[in-house]
C-alpha cells in the first residue's frame, strides 16, 4: 500500500494497463506533455512527459482539437484491434463528439448484431466547484445514462478510481469515466499492485440503520460528512456509493432501503432526469412498501453554473443540505399500517 492522490491513481491505472497490453494506446489533447498529471502514474503530479518517454509516440498520441474525429477514430480503432483510452480533458467537451458517442460508439455493437466490440475508455474531468464558469463546470453523466450501450464510472476515491479504470480498460465495452477535479488532490492508501473493481458493484462506506444515503462522485464525501454529524445526533446513516452508474447496483440500494426505510440521494448533477431521479424511481417502484418517509434528492438546481465564487458553491450538494434532507425524511409521519 502507498499513499496516492485521486489524480495519481488514475495515472497508475493507465500505466498498469499500458504495460499489460501493447494494444492499449492513449490519445487526446496535450497528453504528450502530461498537462493534467495523469500521464505519469503513481505520483500526484508526474514528471513532464513520463508516458511519452515510457511508451513512445506510437502509443501516446497528441490529437488536434477535434473531438468528433478523436472519439470516432478511437471507436474505429477499437473495432479493429486496439484498446484506446481517450483523454477528453473537460467533460463539457464530450458534447463536441455527441454524434460519435451516441450514434457510433453506443450503437455499433448492437446495430451490427454483435460483430463489433468496442474496448475503449473516454476519460473526462468535471471541473465544477472551481470557478471555471458555465462551459467547464458540467456534470453530464446522467445524459449518457440515457444512452444504452455505454458504461459509466464515477469514482469518488483514489482506490476506486484505480481499480475501476483498470477494469474499464480491460473491458470489451465502451466506458465513459467522469472524474471530479475537486477530488484530484484527495489522498488515501492505495494498493500499488494490480487490482480490478467490478462494474455494477456498489461500495458501502458506512453501515447504518435509520437512513440510506446514496452518494455519487463528490456526493459520497458530502454524504460521509453528513453521516458523521448525524451520528452525534443519534441518527445512524448508511452511506452507499454505486461507483458505476451503468451498470447500476440497484440491489445494494434496495437491500439497504429495505432495512432503513429511508433514502436520500446526493448527486451533483442537475435535478431533472438526473441520476438521483433514476434511483428514486427504481426505489419507488421496487421498494415502495419499505419506505417510511419521502425519498429526498440533494442535487444541483436546474440552473447553469455561474462564475463568481460568491454564488457558485451554494448550488452544489453539501453536508448541510444532506443533513437537512435526512431530517426531512426522518420527520415525515410514518405511513399508517
Amino acid at each position: 500500500m502507498t499513499v496516492m492522490s485521486y489524480l495519481g491513481a488514475i495515472g497508475a491505472a493507465q500505466r498498469e494497463a499500458m504495460e499489460a497490453d501493447p494494444r492499449v494506446i492513449i490519445m487526446g489533447e496535450d497528453v504528450e506533455a502530461n498537462v493534467y498529471g495523469t500521464m505519469g502514474g503513481g505520483k500526484s503530479r508526474a514528471d513532464k512527459g513520463d508516458f511519452l518517454q515510457m511508451f513512445g509516440a506510437r502509443r501516446i498520441r497528441n490529437t488536434p482539437i477535434s473531438e468528433e474525429a478523436m472519439v470516432g477514430a478511437a471507436a474505429g480503432a477499437a473495432m479493429t484491434g486496439l484498446r484506446p483510452i481517450v483523454d477528453l480533458s473537460y467533460s463539457s467537451f464530450l458534447y463536441m463528439a455527441m454524434d460519435q458517442l451516441v450514434n457510433q460508439v453506443a450503437k455499433n455493437r448492437y446495430m451490427f448484431g454483435g460483430q463489433a466490440s468496442l474496448p475503449v475508455v473516454f476519460r473526462s474531468a468535471m471541473f465544477f466547484g472551481l470557478n471555471t464558469g458555465a462551459h467547464h463546470s458540467d456534470r453530464p453523466y446522467p445524459m449518457f445514462m440515457n444512452v444504452p450501450g455505454l458504461k459509466i464510472m464515477v469514482p469518488a476515491t483514489p482506490s476506486d478510481a484505480k481499480g475501476l479504470l483498470r477494469t474499464a480498460v480491460d473491458m470489451d465495452d465502451p466506458v465513459l469515466s467522469f472524474e471530479a477535479c475537486i477530488l484530484w488532490g484527495l489522498k488515501e492508501e492505495v494498493d500499488e499492485g494490480e487490482y480490478r473493481i467490478p462494474f455494477g458493484v456498489a461500495r458501502t462506506h458506512r453501515h447504518g440503520n435509520d437512513v440510506t444515503i446514496v452518494g455519487i462522485s463528490t456526493g459520497v464525501h458530502a454524504a460521509l460528512q453528513a453521516a458523521q454529524k448525524l451520528e452525534a445526533e443519534g441518527i445512524s446513516a448508511e452511506v452507499i456509493d454505486p461507483r458505476t452508474m451503468v451498470p447500476l447496483d440497484s440491489d445494494a440500494i434496495l437491500n439497504s432501503v429495505a432495512r432503513t426505510g429511508r433514502l436520500v440521494i446526493v448527486d451533483p448533477a442537475h435535478t431533472t432526469c438526473g441520476a438521483a431521479a433514476e434511483i428514486s424511481a427504481i426505489v419507488a417502484e421496487k421498494a415502495f412498501d419499505c419506505l417510511r418517509g419521502p425519498i429526498m434528492r440533494v442535487t444541483t438546481p436546474d440552473t447553469q453554473i455561474p462564475f463568481s465564487p460568491a454564488i457558485e458553491k451554494q448550488l452544489y450538494p453539501d453536508a448541510a443540505k444532506t443533513i437537512a434532507a435526512v431530517k426531512r425524511t426522518m420527520e415525515a409521519r410514518t405511513r399508517a399500517a
Partner: peptide, 28 residues
C-alpha cells in the same frame, strides 16, 4: 465495418481503422 444512417458519421470510424492498422502494423 458498417454503413451509417447519419450522413458523414462513419468517416471517423474508418479513420480509426486506419489508425489501428498503423499502430499494429497490419498493412491494411
Amino acid at each position: 465495418l458498417g454503413e451509417s444512417g447519419i450522413v458523414g458519421s462513419s468517416i471517423p470510424i474508418a479513420t480509426g481503422a486506419a489508425l489501428s492498422s498503423k499502430v499494429l502494423g497490419t498493412g491494411r
